[in-house]
């Protein structure tokens, strides 16, 4: 199994997975605790609301801090050209990528490792999703590792910056439903 620690999206996805399970367990735990606590009844509701509102205030501030931190992380990891152009050094290799029902056209099939690449992505007919997956050094990795994505929309160019850290075989898979053969819309290129 090839698991590239260089692939940032994999790290993010792993964290999302961990946080998803953690949130499920935490929320279900709180709901279970409250559900088990209904008996006996406390007649004076104020004895419940006072500490309840105190917890709520603490929760509000905790949520605010977590949200602000996450918002900052979200914004600094925005993949948009204006931000990426400030991050990269040197001229990027530009690749024109066009989606159509049901395939992709790229003007380069071999891309450099370790250098910034800019995909100028558009579409001929309908909306498509340009998803790049890593399929191992020799293409033998059946299930691709998700690397990066953007939309492919007619009349618009989505500029996606990627710096490939791993040489090998990559495939583009369509990530926006585009019709009856959406699931077979793929294209292979190499990074050397």
């Amino acid at each position: 199994m090839v698991f590239s620690k260089e692939v940032k999206s994999v790290r993010t996805q792993t964290w999302i997975g961990i946080m998803s399970v953690a949130s499920l367990v935490a929320i279900a735990g709180i709901f279970l605790k409250v559900a088990m606590s209904t008996q006996p009844r406390e007649e004076n509701y104020e004895n419940i609301t006072k500490p309840g509102y105190a917890i709520r205030r603490k929760y509000f501030w905790a949520l605010l801090i977590v949200s602000v931190v996450c918002l900052v992380i979200s914004v600094i990891s925005f993949p948009y050209p204006a931000i990426m152009e400030a991050k990269i050094t040197g001229e990027p290799v530009v690749v024109k990528a066009t989606g159509f029902q049901f395939g992709w056209e790229l003007d380069k099939d071999v891309l450099p490792v370790g250098k910034p690449v800019r995909f100028d992505v558009t579409a001929k007919d309908v909306n498509h999703g340009f998803g790049i997956y890593y399929h191992g050094k020799d293409g033998s990795l059946k299930k691709g590792i998700f690397v990066a994505q953007t939309q492919a929309m007619p009349d618009y160019i989505n500029k996606l910056y990627v710096t490939f850290k791993d040489p090998g075989v990559y495939r583009i898979w369509c990530l926006e439903y585009c019709g009856a053969a959406h699931h077979i819309m793929t294209y292979e290129f190499r990074v050397e």
Binding site: I30, V34, T38, P40, G52, R56, L63, S67
Partner: peptide
């Protein structure tokens, strides 16, 4: 991110406070 505030701080927490030691039967 903002949408999480009214939903969880007021409605969901409010429901939990409402139910806690309410004596309700499930």
């Amino acid at each position: 991110y903002m949408a999480a505030f009214p939903a969880t701080v007021v409605t969901i927490t409010g429901t939990l406070i409402l139910i806690y030691k309410s004596g309700m039967k499930w």
